[in-house]
Design a protein around this nucleic acid. Structure first.
Lengths: 364, 364
DNA sequence: CTGAAAGCGCTAACAT
DNA sequence: ATGTTAGCGCTTTCAG
């Protein structure tokens, strides 16, 4: 899987074949072509193009005109090779199907663009092998930086390689990776959700979260426990379940808890888990909130549409995304100047609970 | 906006500064380093790495080991410069926030990865200027190909440049661009939706679509009209409205139609329009389907959650995405071999209507 | 089977 | 203000 084969030999399009390409379509004009046309040296053309100070206005205009006429587009690979850095920035996420990651990707792409950087999207599917492959590719492209939602346990290779560029962790955080990170305050999120239920008289509160090997999973359960502790109530561990965020896992866990523990409320510990959970509750035709109070994770347009409005935790996604984007831009700039990036800095954005109609008070 | 400034002078991170970078972090090992370590020539190392036939097994092993030990990662920019093609593939879309594009991006990233290609995500925000900039960047990176959801009117520059690489249009299609395209059968989608309403006795059917300058907008209205024509009923143009897909535009159009035309049903002609429309209907506290029958565009998890289940048109997104992905991979391969890509090929995927609970029959 | 050398397009010293 | 030159890392003839 993570075999360190320097050349992507799994490529279906053989490189040797790719090599022939383009030539068939048309050879793109180069700086030399412009130079020849104008009867000047290549270096003059570069300087004119870059707006170098010691270049005559006349020359600059002539060059610009010629470039435009020929449809000249600078070859960024050549430039990168000389200058040692590209304007590429990677974003490695486990998936982009769920709105959260998509929104983040989008916001970051925007941020990068504004800084003249280009966002490369890479989906890891939460597989360390794919993650490593993407890191390798980005390193190979001499990417300027990297934003990553790390898998639970990156390969050794990934850990080694990633240090070659400025990177920041987002959403999830592996302390061992020791980098800047920007996450949600997961503990706070679930603590508030659980507290809300406790405050309204619930005691048998089920928690259905994602695997605890992830920082998110860990902090979220912790939030659940803290809420009970602060209320001075013992935590009944049987009410805590973790599962893969797919329909099947959630269905089983839910069925099991509902039939054996008779919870009066349930808290979801993840976006995809929330969706699956709501679907199972629909299938079960449960009367919410009479039979069961429900708190979701993540707020979307449709939150208002589930039953009479889902009580849920709202994640400040835009804030996180743009913070991540601008921090990366800064780090890239620093690295560029050879500034040893200071100590890793972490930011936590606080989600907040949005009470709607899927929770009811048990107090008289 | 579309000024042909060859160098991205709008870059916030000055290139000259970027240039200094990396060096500070660590100089990545090159093929030469391996060669020196092993006391062989650089060319031998390349060949060993590529699995060239005429290389001894012993040498290959030694090189592989050394490469791995040093954490060697081939510099794709250098390779691209030599071979003239990169393994980058661009995806330019107006936005990635709405699930459709996100799902498409994701499926395509997968497809590209399997072919050893890397997907670069670029968001145009439906702005021809940004679109052109992205095309320029991709050309500059010597991208192998491009998948694009074109804006209504790409700049002249964009039109010129895009021809330098294999590309295919997706979702929307501009005939002038004359390329492969893979779209939904928009006309069919809205025709079916409208037909469903006509068949169940509706006559005053409102249509709220996106701007007709886009192929999608055009075909969808056409579907509306066709449905009436085929039923032998005259089309009342007053019931047709187009609007930007934002909350405000939709609200106004809807208010207006509802108050002056008393429609018994409404058909949405776009994903984002659907969402906005549902929100307005909520705000108006309309009784659906008693006061108004509603047909949406696009099917999502939440479609089941709006009222008692939204009657809507289901888009075969996965099919479109993977078709697009594999077609592009094929085209890239062909271009690579200098094969003049045959005539532009188009594919239309048929959406289908999913009747749920937001439409009711007016027949006795 | 391996080495030497040239060159992809661009930039940055170093000349003029 | 402009020209010359060297070289980034890799691939690919052309020679052994």
């Amino acid at each position: 899987m993570s075999a360190a084969i320097p050349n992507p030999s799994r490529a279906l399009v053989p490189r040797t074949v790719l090599a022939a390409s383009k030539r068939a379509i048309a050879a793109p004009p180069t700086i030399k072509d412009i130079a020849r046309d104008l009867g000047v040296a290549a270096s003059t053309v570069t300087r004119a193009l870059q707006g170098h100070p010691r270049i005559s206005e006349a020359m600059r205009a002539k060059v610009a005109a010629a470039a435009l006429a020929m449809g000249y587009v600078p070859d960024s690979t050549a430039r990168t090779m000389r200058t040692k850095v590209s304007r590429l920035v990677g974003f490695i996420a486990p998936n982009v199907e769920d709105n959260d990651s998509a929104a983040i990707a989008c916001a970051m792409a925007d941020c990068c663009n504004r800084a003249g950087l280009q966002l490369v999207l890479a989906v890891s599917n939460d597989d360390p092998g794919q993650e490593a492959a993407h890191i390798r590719t980005l390193i190979g492209a001499r990417a300027a930086g990297l934003i990553i939602v790390p898998t639970a346990s990156p390969t050794d290779e990934a850990r080694m390689l990633i240090r070659r560029l400025p990177y920041i962790q987002v959403i999830r955080r592996l302390a061992e990776l020791d980098s800047d990170y920007i996450v949600f305050d997961d503990e706070h999120a679930i603590r508030e959700a659980t507290k809300h239920l406790i405050d309204t008289g619930h005691r048998r509160i089920a928690y259905l979260g994602s695997l605890a090997r992830l920082s998110t999973g860990m902090h979220r359960v912790e939030g659940y426990r803290k809420a009970f502790k602060r209320a001075g109530i013992a935590v009944d561990e049987r009410y805590i379940r973790t599962t893969a965020p797919d329909g099947m896992g959630v269905r089983e866990a839910l069925h099991d808890m509902l039939s054996t523990l008779a919870p009066t409320a349930i808290v979801a510990g993840g976006s995809r888990i929330t969706v699956a959970m709501l679907q199972v509750i629909d299938a079960l035709k449960l009367d919410v909130p009479r039979d069961l109070s429900v708190v979701g994770f993540g707020d979307h347009v449709w939150s208002n549409w589930w039953r009479d409005g889902l009580t849920t935790v709202c994640l400040p996604i835009q804030e996180l995304a743009s913070a991540a984007g601008s921090l990366l831009v800064r780090r890239v700039g620093e690295a560029a100047q050879g500034i040893a990036a200071g100590p890793a800095r972490g930011t936590r954005f606080r989600p907040r609970l949005i009470p709607r109609s899927t929770t009811r008070s048990l107090k008289t």
